[in-house]
C-alpha cells in the first residue's frame, strides 16, 4: 500500500513540477497561450511515443537501444511510400508501417530469446541494422505525407458546447497521443499479458516458476515497443512532412524520461503516465530556454546535461535500492 502511495506520489509530484513550469513559462512570456501549447503538444508527440516504446521494454526488465533507429526507419518508409501517391493510399500506408514496427520489434525479442545474447547487445546490433535499412530506403531527407495525416495533428479539437477559449487548449496532437496510448495501454495493463510483463521484469525466475511464458511475454513486450516506435516514426513524418534517415536524439531522451517518470531501470515497476508527464516536463524546459532567448545550440547542451543528470540520478537510486 505504501508502495502504491509512493508511486502515485511520484507522478503527482511530476504533475506539480509540470504546473510550476507552466507558471514559469507564463512569467517569462506573458503572451504564452493556446497556440504555443498546441505546438508544444506537436513537439512532444514523437518523444512521447519513443518514451512509451522504451517504457514497455524497461518494465519487462530490458532496454531497447533501437528505438530511435526504428523511428527513423518507419518514418522514411512512410514518407517514401506516400511520396506522389494519392490521399487514399495513405490509409494503407499507416497500418502497413505500424505492422512493420510490430514485426521488427518482435524480431528484436525473438533474437534476444533465441540467441540468449543480452538485450543491450542485440538492440545495439539492430540499431546498426535499422539505421542502415533507413539509409537504404531514403539516403537523404525527403518524401511526402498525405494532407489528411498532417491535418490530424494540427489545429484543435472542436467540441460543441464548449467555449472557444477552452477549446483552444485541446490540440489535436494531444488527443491523438492520448487515444493511441490509451487504446493500447489500458487493455494491456488490465490483461493477463500486462501482468506477465510486470512479472518478468520484477523477477524472471519467480515469473517462470509461476508458469508465466517468459519467452513469449518478452517477445510481445519488444513487439509492442516496436509498435510504439512506429507510431513515433509516423508522428515524425506527420509533423515534419518528410522522412529523415538519421535518427534523432530520441534514445537518450526516452531513457531519461523513463527514469524521470518513476520507472525503475531494473524493471517491474512504474506505469506509462509518469514517463509521458516527464516528457512534457523535459520539453517545457526546452521551450523555456528558447523563450529566454538562449542560443539553440546552448539549449541542446543544457538539455543533454539535464538528461545525463537525470539518468545518473536514476542509476544512483537503483544502486541504493539494491544495497
Amino acid at each position: 500500500m505504501s508502495h502504491l502511495l509512493r508511486r502515485q506520489g511520484w507522478v503527482a509530484g511530476l504533475f506539480a513540477l509540470l504546473i510550476i513550469l507552466f507558471i514559469i513559462t507564463k512569467l517569462i512570456q506573458p503572451g504564452y497561450g493556446s497556440s504555443d501549447f498546441g505546438s508544444l503538444a506537436r513537439a512532444v508527440l514523437p518523444y512521447a511515443f519513443a518514451v512509451a516504446a522504451q517504457t514497455v521494454v524497461v518494465i519487462a526488465g530490458g532496454i531497447d537501444l533501437s528505438v530511435a533507429a526504428m523511428m527513423a526507419l518507419t518514418s522514411v518508409t512512410a514518407a517514401s511510400m506516400m511520396n506522389g501517391a494519392s490521399e487514399e493510399y495513405a490509409l494503407f500506408v499507416v497500418p502497413f508501417v505500424l505492422a512493420m514496427g510490430f514485426v521488427l520489434g518482435a524480431v528484436n525479442g525473438i533474437l534476444i530469446v533465441v540467441t540468449r545474447v543480452p538485450d543491450i547487445v542485440v538492440t545495439l546490433a539492430t540499431l546498426f541494422v535499422l539505421q542502415g535499412a533507413a539509409l537504404l530506403v531514403l539516403d537523404a531527407p525527403g518524401g511526402a505525407v498525405a494532407e489528411w495525416l498532417k491535418g490530424l495533428i494540427s489545429g484543435t479539437v472542436p467540441i460543441p458546447g464548449l467555449p472557444d477559449a477552452i477549446d483552444a487548449w485541446l490540440p489535436k496532437a494531444l488527443l491523438v497521443l492520448v487515444i493511441c496510448l490509451c487504446v493500447i495501454w489500458i487493455p494491456l495493463r488490465r490483461s493477463k499479458l500486462g501482468l506477465s510483463i510486470y512479472a518478468i521484469g520484477s523477477s524472471e525466475l519467480a515469473a517462470f516458476r509461476s508458469g508465466v511464458p517468459v519467452a513469449r511475454t518478452r517477445i510481445i513486450a519488444y513487439a509492442l515497443s516496436g509498435l510504439f516506435a512506429a507510431f513515433g516514426g509516423l508522428a515524425l513524418t506527420m509533423s515534419t512532412g518528410i522522412g529523415a534517415p538519421i535518427p534523432g536524439p530520441y534514445l537518450l531522451a526516452s531513457v531519461a524520461a523513463v527514469v524521470l517518470g518513476g520507472v525503475a531501470l531494473g524493471g517491474g515497476k512504474g506505469g506509462l503516465l509518469g514517463p509521458i508527464v516527464a516528457v512534457f516536463v523535459l520539453r517545457l524546459v526546452r521551450t523555456d530556454l528558447t523563450l529566454l532567448a538562449i542560443d539553440p545550440n546552448v539549449t541542446a547542451i543544457i538539455e543533454g546535461a539535464i538528461m545525463v543528470a537525470v539518468v545518473m540520478f536514476g542509476a544512483f537510486i537503483t544502486m541504493r535500492g539494491r544495497q
Binding site: 543491450i120 536524439p249 542560443d295 545550440n297 546552448v298 547542451i301 543533454g304 539518468v311 540520478f313 542509476a315
Partner: peptide
C-alpha cells in the same frame, strides 16, 4: 565518474556525453 561512481550504463552515459560534446562543438 558517471559509470564508475553513479553506475550509469556505459552505453547511455557515453551516448549522453557525446550529445553534449556535439552541442559544445557547434557553439
Amino acid at each position: 565518474i558517471g559509470v564508475g561512481v553513479f553506475r550509469v550504463h556505459p552505453l547511455i552515459m557515453t551516448l549522453g556525453t557525446s550529445l553534449i560534446g556535439t552541442g559544445c562543438l557547434q557553439v
